[in-house]
Amino acid sequence: MNYYLLRCGSNGKYQLGLGDDEDKDHLVEEKLNWEPSKIACGGNHTLVLSTDGYIYGCGDNSKGQCGIDDVPVVPNLTAVPKVGGSDWTDVAAGWQFSLLLNENRELWVCGEGFSGELGLGKKMYQTKLTKIPGIWDIDQIETSIHSVMIKLKGGQLYGWGNNRKGLLNLDSDRIIWEPQLIDEQVKQVSLARSFSVVVKEGSLSVKGKTDIQCKLDPKEISFLSTMWSSLHFIEKNKLHSMGNNSHGQIFYDGLSVENIEQISLGSEHGLILYANHSVSAWGWGEHGNCGQKPIENKDRPTDEQVTYSLNEIYNGSRPVKFIQGGCATSWIVVSDVS
């Protein structure tokens, strides 16, 4: 079985891994000799995890955020060294930093951050790949631009980084420099730019700087995720959105989800994978991340010209394994027709 990586969108720092720095308003395809299992998108860098334990990075590496030494940019997907030969098993990315988990349950961090997002202690602002102390039995890693939340398999929730207005669900200092236990018996978390959502048995809380107020019964929620400034969830088979709607982010309130296989949210746009393998995008698409649309005045386009309602970016001609939204980038992994 062959796999192909299709991507479009913002590309000013080679974050699409195509060897150039031009934005793409149509999907550009690359045949791989490995199988992707997860894609993590930072501000201007991308990391792709493979099923055989490698992570491939591309894009801005000026702060070492791709985990590759001594090059300011990585123009094409390049393997990150396996520390001690151990397989990588999970990956996440923030604005200019990355988190990599290996099979020994060691959590490694690289890149730059001034708000404690590296988790290595006070005034640690930049690092090459370094192990965060501890053994991490991770179920879910959530990152936003300057913050991290990690849910362990036992339900414990840890966080570090920017805690402005209590966005990490902690009352303490604004900056959390090292991993700190936030809560227990947590079912799911989602971390937006300035707020977080923590789901527990029988409760759902939104903390941080946001107008979003919702009283939801977690038992009815089958999907929950965030863009930078909005919350999206499926309740009783309907997709609902709350939060910032400056560029059509909230378009799908109340849409029935019967034919939807996957939803993935980027910084200010979303992707929907349908059962027929087609993929459509909505929200803010100024960099081609929601596909093509004629923009007459590219220097100062109007809001309408950069807002997309439901634009098909992939027609489903081959089976889709998964989709991923990034910082104004869109990614689709497809395989050969079986």
Partner: peptide, 17 residues
């Protein structure tokens, strides 16, 4: 983030800049 040399304030944009 304030850069005292360039005397500008910067904040991440969802486009990457």
């Amino acid at each position: 983030i304030f850069d005292p040399i360039l005397q500008i304030f910067q904040y991440p944009c969802p486009c990457g800049d």
